[in-house]
Nucleic acid binder design. Sequence first.
RNA 1: GGCCGGGUGGCCGAGUGGCUUAGGCAAGGGCCUGCAAAGCCCUGUACGCGGGUUCGAUUCCCGCCCCGGCCUCCA
Length: 465
Amino acid sequence: MLRLMDTRTRSVETITPATPGVLSVYACGPTVYRYAHVGNLRTFLLTDLLRRTAELLGLQVRLVQNITDVGHLQDDTNLDADGEDKLLAQARLENKDPFAVARFYEDAFHRDLALLNVKPADAYPRASESIDLMLSLIATLVDKGHAYVGEDGTVYFDARSFPGYGAISGNRLEDLRAGHGATGESTATGKRFHADWALWKRASENRAMTWDSPWGHGFPGWHIECSAMSLDLLGETIDVHTGGIDLRFPHHEDERAQSDCAVGHEVVRHWVRGEHLLFEGRKMAKSTGNVVLVSDVVARGFDPLALRLAFLSSRYRQQANLSWDAIAGAQRTLDRWRAAVAAWAEEPSKPMCAEVQQDVLEAFSDDLDTPRALQVLRKLEKSDLPAGAKFETFAWADRLLGLDLVRDVGKAPVPLPAGAAELLASRAAARAAKDFAASDRLRDELAVLGVAVKDTPAGQEWTLS
RNA sequence: GGCCGGGUGGCCGAGUGGCUUAGGCAAGGGCCUGCAAAGCCCUGUACGCGGGUUCGAUUCCCGCCCCGGCCUCCA
């Protein structure tokens, strides 16, 4: 049985799909105006772990993840026609068409997911291609009295029309400060109430990324896209909705209000959110200047899956403090496990260790307790169970871990650099003759070529560094 | 002002009303080795502060301090 921390009820809930056997999951995706940083990816990994666990438990998973390529403003309080969209700002910076920018970073997003072994979702709907869905949802909300056209021509959701507003975030309408952050002053002109938010914004004719609508030429607000696309692709009941903790408010609060008001009942059954990743003690953010990309991890010589392992070593709903040391430590473990798995694979296959298998699956089922699962596997690694059983169990567990642990099994030997074979032969001869001065000199020469030599009872062995 | 999450040994990080009190990294000692490397073994008794509940609290409750985040940009 899969259990997850539901941030609405604030307790660990057993996940029972509304449709038996089929788990529907909606994951808040990226706004594709820049590369995703590793903090973003940690949240996407959460969805992947959920999916892998559910599948191993025998559920069919229907996963939808949106691509936000329009409507996400730099500053949502600036609701006039010049409100700057994140994508438009980036397009201006890069001197490109905004949709070209969006497609570029969307491709990068998919590549990053692949590098982290995150399985693709079943659908990646784009906001810009779901405008009709949003317009019809907005019309429904206006008809039902949950939305109104403000004096500025923008369509707003009436926050006070949804009694459950605030249930996710714990924010009470009367305690919300008007305006942006602590500054206090609202800059929006057409709202009836400061907590109302825009569903459709009026825009001037010459603005890019705009569409015609019954409420004039304009563009959608950020929150409405998730309601529209999730209702369309997953229906009026969604088992699990994932995202980052920072989306709790206002994004998810507003999405819930829109979806529930449109269909008349609770749409999302469970909200699951990943905590922030800190880097060197600070939240990873552009404004903090500590953004790390997958490409940065690769540039430092690490396997992207070392990053995945580093993430697995802490619980998704705990803030984690990542560092280069932590990634390096994960890389060492990853290397050791891959080598061990490859060595075990040489031994006769034995049945999986059922107890370990059960413990690992139970750890994942228990609100994705990956640190515990890793502990179970470390114990197995050091146990005196047959190598064949260790191999089978690790190979099985990798379906959850996604670390390519069997990558080096039966791997063809890597060719030596030119001249290295001769040096190795000379060194073997020198050692046989107990000429250790020559032996040490040859070891240094091989190291320069990138060949690391170590001596074992069976003779010298080498690896490429 | 409101809301959320934390404070665990040198560092990172699990966890728990008592039990041999994770694990990793780093450190020290040892085995092994011609020397290294790798590996293996051993060592280090920690839970922010003050109260309370309890036979017993790091774990539960209250207060306080500190840290991170959110309050209409954010995974």
